[in-house]
Every structure is written in structure tokens, then in C-alpha cells.
């Protein structure tokens, strides 16, 4: 169930001192699922004073054994702590929302007099996969009037992060920027985003035009170990057959749309 990215930060001065063994924060979570954050540490010779969890420097959970109750959660936007499943070494967020995304840090502090402190952190992003495929649209009249070429738009479904669109003509990816028209992303409710991409289609022959929309966090910088599973990556296509006569001004456009394929990426596990 959990894809875990493990980042270990060590603040080691002496082996006997307090140190963080491991802080485990899942890199991506699909909205609505629970996320468990782990903080493994060694106290050395010290007594625990506090374990504090921060998201983006804002404390949302602390464990202080001397206090009653020792567990205390603060209400943050997008953070909902399940206290019953949280303790001095882990905290459970349930469910995660798109607002849960952030830098999560665990700080462990020893009691007086040293107040030695160690911390580890990791980033978690929450994603939302599109429920519908991209749609290809065109303006019949305008296309007729222009005659020599045809203009098509492809618009993705709502997702987080935004889908990336690309055009294929007869199976060949269009890279000529003269043919492509980009638009700013369109913001929707709950932080969802849709994107669009325009294409000038040369006329005079019959061709197959395809628009592909991909949603995946794998391009995020620094995540060299991008792992896709069916829940975290999504790719959808829309296809169109363009028929063109040798006559001067009339075009028959047949919307074929026929293929709707959900490509599931295979799960790749990164073993550390």
C-alpha cells in the first residue's frame, strides 16, 4: 500500500548522543488515503523531552512524555492527525488532502540539561488523477473559411498536479512550435488544474491525429527514484481521423474517437 521514500538525516556528534535513525515520509499520496510518518531515533544516554512534528515549520503534533496527555495535535489546514495511531515514533495523517502537501520534519529533543536535539524531514505530495480523458475540439466554420489548414484544441481533464498534453499526427509527435499553441493552466475547485494545447493541422490529405494527456509526479526534481504505480500515474488519449478531398473548399471531418485507453504503468520499486 505504501510507497515509502526514506531520507535519513543524521546529526552525529557522539554515538552516545541523541540521534535520528530514520525519518520516513511518503513522497506522494493520492487524495483521500491515510499517510503514516515515521521518526526513528536513538536517545543515547538522554531522556526524551519532546518529539515534535512540523509541516513547513509549523508544529502539528508533539509528544512530550512529561505532559499529560503526552500527545497533542494542532489543527493545520490539510492535516488531520489520528492521535490513536500516533505515538512517540510515528504520526498518522488520515485522510490526506491536496492541502496536506508539504515538508514534514520530526525533531527529537532530550531533557535538560543538554536539550540535545536532532531532526529529520521529508516532503510529501498529495495527487489527484483525472477522471476523464482529454477532449479534441475544432471549429468547423472557421476551419472551412481558412481552407488551407485546420486548427484543433486538446483539453485535459481536472487533476493535481496538472496533466501534460502532446499531439501525434499519424503516430509522429508534433514538436514544431509553429504548429503548437500553448495556454495557461485552468484552475478549478479544490486545487485541481486542467491544461489545453492547440494544433494547426496541415490539410490536403487524410491523417490520424492523437492527443495524449499524462499525469505523474515523476518529473519532480530531485526524485531520482520515481516509481509509478497505477495509483500515482495516469495517461489518457483521444484520436481523430481527418479526411481531406482534392476539392477546393469543402472538408469532411469525421470524428472517429475511438480509442480510449487507460495505460497503467507498472509498479517499479526502488530498493535503497
Amino acid at each position: 500500500m505504501f510507497v515509502t521514500f526514506i531520507i535519513i538525516s543524521l546529526l552525529i556528534k557522539e554515538s552516545l548522543l541523541l540521534r535520528i535513525v530514520r525519518v520516513a515520509v511518503p513522497s506522494y499520496k493520492v487524495r483521500g488515503q491515510p499517510a503514516q510518518l515515521d521518526c526513528d531515533y536513538e536517545l543515547g544516554g538522554d531522556i526524551l523531552y519532546s518529539v515534535k512534528w512540523y509541516r513547513d515549520n509549523e508544529e502539528f503534533y508533539r509528544y512530550m512524555p512529561k505532559y499529560d496527555p503526552p500527545k497533542h495535535a494542532y489543527k493545520l489546514d490539510g492535516i488531520k492527525v489520528d492521535l490513536s495511531k500516533s505515538d512517540d515514533r510515528k504520526v498518522l495523517l488520515h485522510p490526506v488532502t491536496l492541502k496536506s502537501t508539504g515538508q514534514f520534519r520530526c525533531e527529537v529533543s532530550a531533557e535538560a540539561p543538554s536539550f540535545a536535539s536532532a531532526a529529520g524531514e521529508g516532503r510529501m505530495e498529495v495527487i489527484y488523477l483525472p477522471r476523464e480523458g482529454p477532449r479534441i475540439t475544432g471549429n468547423q466554420q472557421e476551419n472551412n473559411r481558412r481552407g488551407d489548414s485546420m486548427f484543433l484544441n486538446c483539453t485535459s481533464g481536472r487533476s493535481y498536479p496538472a496533466a501534460v498534453l502532446s499531439w501525434d499526427i499519424d503516430g509522429e509527435k508534433v514538436t514544431d512550435p509553429a504548429l503548437l499553441v500553448e495556454y495557461p493552466p485552468i484552475q478549478h475547485q479544490h486545487g485541481l488544474v486542467s491544461t489545453a494545447l492547440g494544433l494547426h493541422v496541415p490539410t490536403g490529405r487524410t491523417m490520424q491525429v492523437r492527443c495524449t494527456a499524462r499525469v505523474a509526479p515523476s518529473w519532480r526534481e530531485g526524485s531520482e527514484a520515481v516509481v509509478g504505480n497505477s495509483q500515482l500515474a495516469d495517461s489518457k488519449e483521444a484520436m481523430l481521423l481527418v479526411k481531406s478531398s482534392c476539392g477546393v473548399s469543402t472538408l469532411n471531418i469525421m470524428l472517429l474517437t475511438l480509442s480510449f485507453a487507460l495505460l497503467l504503468s507498472s509498479l517499479i520499486q526502488l530498493e535503497t
Partner: peptide
Amino acid sequence: LLVLWYREDLGTPIYS
């Protein structure tokens, strides 16, 4: 309750 000053390269506070 507590004010702790750390220097980032050190694990223990330098002032409390």
C-alpha cells in the same frame, strides 16, 4: 517554557 538556541552545525544548544 523553554528557549533554546542552536547553532546549526551543533546538535546541542548553545544557550538555553
